[in-house]
Structures are given as structure tokens and as C-alpha cells.
Design a protein around this nucleic acid. Sequence first.
DNA 1: ACGAATTGGGAAAGCGCATTCCCTCTGTTT
DNA 2: AAACAGAGGGAATGCGCTTTCCCAATTCGT
Lengths: 360, 360
Amino acid sequence: MAASTLTEVARLAGVSPATASRVLNGSARTPGKDIAERVRQAADSLGYIPNAQAQGLAKSSSGLIGLIVHDIADPYFAAIARGVQDAAREQRKMVLLATTGGGPAEEKEAVAAFAARRADSIVIAGSRSCRAEDQEGNAQLAAELDRYCRNGGRVAVVGHPVVGATALEGYHVVEIPNQELAGRLATELAAGWDGDFVIIAGPESLYTSDDRVRGFQDGLARAGHRPAEVLRSAFNRSGGYEAGLQLAARIKAAAAGNPAAPKLCIFAVNDVMAIGAAAALRSEGLRIPRDASIAGFDDIETLRDFRPALSTVRLPLEDIGRLATRATRPRPAGQDQEAAPDEAVTGEVTLRRSTEAAAV
Amino acid sequence: MAASTLTEVARLAGVSPATASRVLNGSARTPGKDIAERVRQAADSLGYIPNAQAQGLAKSSSGLIGLIVHDIADPYFAAIARGVQDAAREQRKMVLLATTGGGPAEEKEAVAAFAARRADSIVIAGSRSCRAEDQEGNAQLAAELDRYCRNGGRVAVVGHPVVGATALEGYHVVEIPNQELAGRLATELAAGWDGDFVIIAGPESLYTSDDRVRGFQDGLARAGHRPAEVLRSAFNRSGGYEAGLQLAARIKAAAAGNPAAPKLCIFAVNDVMAIGAAAALRSEGLRIPRDASIAGFDDIETLRDFRPALSTVRLPLEDIGRLATRATRPRPAGQDQEAAPDEAVTGEVTLRRSTEAAAV
DNA sequence: ACGAATTGGGAAAGCGCATTCCCTCTGTTT
DNA sequence: AAACAGAGGGAATGCGCTTTCCCAATTCGT
């Protein structure tokens, strides 16, 4: 038994395929009550399921939303994905997932694949990079997105615009105020903290990381504090762990020389790195916040039960995913293009136990 | 500029669409070198991207793998999703994501949607339920899957077979030895532990939860231990938290009556619930493992830095996703159907600090 | 009450591609 | 040199559906 087709349904109901199509899918024209009922019954008895591919081909739109993330198992992206999924359901669409590992080349591939499937819109999450080695990849990604938009596709980028992408119609950016929030975090931490700050950052030229570093330094400056040293490492837990080991050695050396040495406050540019760093300190016998303070960024849900509770900046990740997805929805014709500006994303500095010595 | 079509490419290259199709997609017949080159150049200069919908319609196969999870932001499912994604890439396919919240009715919807899109295979993760209220949903889900399989679709279910599904060709189950592993965990914990055991379980009739409970009780019995009391709660963090509050009250009452009362060892049927329970105990001023032991199940990666380190059963979630996806790949024709049985999933009891008092 | 406007159904033309079938051209066999 | 096989290219058909366009049967207007 092959899947039954619209034609079969029509034949069984004794009508033309055109009529069957009109009743089974919302058309402008609605056939008569009795005929509609006959068609619906025929469809039911055959277990008819419309072929979405054929529908898509005929109306050149697929009901698909493409989502590009670095790694779906990373809780940051998983949270965004949940929001995207949620908004997709609102629009009665399905989401196509692509994980790229973060390289613009893979992202370009993913965009091409989505374009091939005629996805109605694409949401790109994950930090942009402007490293020299990524330059060509970025250019190709931008070109691919350009083409996709010109063909009527809609794109939303989370965080930072794609490098080199021209501001086309249908191209939206959901800005995350990384810099401002990092600045606020810094000033709150700097109040009543005399010791040094150290930043555990991601690789150079990663916008998310760079923005947070810059914002944090600005905040320190505003608080009249001297700038923090910046340690660069991988943008994940093990990056944080390695940097943490370095810092642990340094802290222990300082304490050996002068037991009353001022403590260090560590800012890791995301929660996962902060957790890694904390684990490293702990494995070296240091305690938080007794021997050092530490703060992260993102407020990952799964990590909220971590002890000592991690000071961080709460980001509404799920909302961000939702917002990005909604931004790609074509506005109702009556509405002015500028009437409904994209809602702004806001975060919230959340001080917890891991920086208690600093806050007091 | 609309997306260019194969016909346009063919015209530009001065060949027929048939030839263009043959060179741009691996066909059995390969046109001559020079012509192939001309076509490829034409395609390049037009930025041709094949329309996957049309291709799918023509060959009735879509290159899509459907993945059904309860919640993509749950680290358990996110880890599986990563494996699925990985295996999909191996097969040069894309994954379509559906999150259902766990109800069989929504799962049925998702299967229908995947069928409509002509997904080549479907992977269903997430616990089956046999509650009376889910009976009708389960039946409908089974029927939908049946139909999908009969139409040539391939299905892999993670964990427990769909209730009522007939063993059709193309229907695979990746068994997770929940019962056996829970039993092993119980015997290891029971060695050298005289106090009582309590199980924080999920809702009744949830197979994953029930299997783990049953296995744990069996293990206790094998170790000559009396059975554990079972507390039922929601299958997530807050369920664990609530059960934890109850237990905390009980522990404090017992300690008040008799300071030397034997301690409790808590087994939560998954890590997330265990973390919730631990948080509840801590909020009530109890310490782990000093005042109680606790163990989980799954060994969620993000939770490994939790302190005290959680005793649990490691499940190779990513592999499970990969295995399930591979199981849906049609076997090479030459191979015997039975020649390559699905690889078995194994887990590993991992005792850590949270049950140290028990293990010693 | 008669022509005009409207309604409701069907025929048919694609959407973009794969694929079968047919035709021509070249190279081989006796 | 005649007959044949095979290779390589094109015309045409169909995948399942949507959507004009067209036509017959109504209902409406003055």
C-alpha cells in the first residue's frame, strides 16, 4: 500500500482533484458543504496525508525553518533551539536543524542546504568570528545569505551581524547587549573589591567573547578600577578548565609569598567556561569564593544548581530564539515595515555566592 | 532574481535538461567530459542550487531524518540529538526536529508531519508511557507508525518499543538496559550500607522510570536488602526538588528523635531529578553525603562538575542517538538482514562522592 | 421576465526535477 | 563493406499538488 494521493481521494469522492485540493487545504474558494463532507470522508477512509514536498513545489514555500547552531548539545544553543521550536509551532512550521561546529564554511553549507530545501526562513545562532582565516568563509557565507534573501528568504542572526552581509530586506539581527551587560557586571563587581580582575576569554576575534571582554573592561574603567588581564582559551568548558589551572598556580604562588595578598576575581566570558575554571581551581585545592571569586555569563539553566552558585548575567535565551524566529515572519501587509521594531533583548546581572567576597 | 532552475542551466550550457541533470547529480550515465564541464560552469555562473523539493518529489525520497524528543533543551535529549545529527551527516541527510512535550498525541502529530514531508526515517526518543489516559494516544501513534513503515519508512525508537506497534519491517528498537543497570547500581550501593533506600521515581507507567525502579529493587533484593520505598513525582528537576523537600523533612525528624539514626540513600531515576533533590536537601540545611547519600541515572555531561560529584549510571547518549539513526539506514542489498544485529547499548555504574558514605 | 453578475465545479497548465524510451553517431565484427 | 552493438544525447512523461482559466448553473437587478 503506497501512500494515497489527492487524485485518489478525489476519485473516491467523485470530484475533481481541484475541488479536493480546495477543501482539504484552506483555499480562497470553499466548495459546497455536502461536497466538502464527501471529500473529507474519502480522505479519512484512505488515510490521506498530503505530500508536503509536492505542496511546497507547487506553491514554492516549504513550511520549513532552518536553524543553524554550533552544537545542539551545548545548553546555550539548546535553550535557543527550544525558543525557535516554540515559535515555529506558532507559525505551524517545522524546524530543520544544522550543527556546524562554528566554522563559517560549514555555516555556508548549511545555508545552501536550507536554500535547496526552500526553507522559508533561517535562524543563525552562534558567535561570528572575524579571524583572518575565517575571512573567506565569512565572505562566502555572506554571499550565500545574500542570494538566499534575494530569492525571498528571510534570515535572522542572533548576536552579531554576519561579517560582510549587506543589509538586505528580510535580513534581521537580534542584538544581544553583550558589551553593556558585561559592563554592568563589572561595575557591580568592582564596587567594594580591591583585588585584581582576570578575564578568561575565548579565542581572539570571536565577537561574543570580544564584546564581553570590552564591556567588562569599560565597566572596570568606569568604576575607576585598573584594567583586567585577559587570558585566551577555547570557548568551552575545557578552555575554562585550562585557564583555571594557570590561575590556580598563580594564586597559590601569590598566597605562598604573602598570605594576605589581595584575592583575584575571575570573569569567564560564559558560564560553561566559568564552570570549567571553577573545577580547575577546586582540583587544585582552592575554594570559591574563599580563595577567589568567579563570575560567568549566560545563566545556563542546568548550571543554576551548581555550588557555589555562580554569579552571571541572565540572558533570556529561549526568548531570544523565539524573537529571532518571529523576526523572520513576514509582516502582515497592512502594517508598516517600521511599525513593529524588533523587540530589544535585555539581560540581568545576577550576583550569587561565587562572588560574595567581592560584593560584600 | 529568482532561484535558477536546471532548465536554465541546461539552456545556458546548450544541452538538454536531461543531460544537465545527469551531470549535476550522480546518475548511472555520465555524459562526456567536455559537456560535463560546460554544464558545471553554467551551473556555477548561475549559482544554481538544485531544488530538493522537486528532487524529492521526482525520486520520492527526501534526504530528511525526523527526530522526535520531549524537549530539546533537556540535556538528555540534547545529547541524543547530537548523535542523531552526527549520524545524519554521515548519511548526507538533514534532521527535522519535533518536540512534543512527551504526549503520544503530539508524537502522532509529529510522525504524520514527518510522513507528509516524506522523511526517509524517524527516530523517536523519550520514554513511552502506558498510562490508561495515554492508551488511545498510543494506539494512534502505533497506527501512524505502522502506516509510515508500510509506506517504506524506517523507524527507530530509543528505549522502549511503542506500545502496540507491530513488529514491522523497518521498525527498530534501540534497547537501553535500564533495568539491568539500575540493578547493578543498587547492588554496588547496597554493599556496606545498612540504612534505608528511597527511590524518587517519575510518574507511574512511564517505562523508563518503571524499569529503573524495578531494576533497583531487584538489585537490592539480590544484595539481601529490604525493598526501597518509592516516591513518585514529576520526571524533571522540580519533581526531584519536591520529593527532596519531603525527604528532608523526614530526615530531620528522624535525626531529632535519634541522632544516631541510620542514614538514607536516595536513588533518583534520572540525574536531573537527583540534582533537584540535592538542591532541596541543601536548602533545608542538609549536607550530602554527610546527612544522606544520593545517586542519579544518565550521567549528564553538563552536570559532571556538580559537587558533591553525583553517583550515577553513565549512558552513552550520543552513541545511542547515532545507533538509532544508523539502524534506520537500509542495509546494503548484499547483506543478510540478520547479519548485522543492532549493536547493544551498555552503560556503566559510576560511583562518586555523593554516595561515598554508602560505598565505604 | 430577460440579460447581467455571481457562484461553484472541472480541465489543464505548470512547479523543478528524474528517468524511461528513442534516436543518431561512432566503432567493431566477419 | 555491410550489419550490428554500444555509447551518448534529447524528447517526453510523470512525481503530487496548486492555481489560473473556462464554462455551466444559479441568483440578482431594474
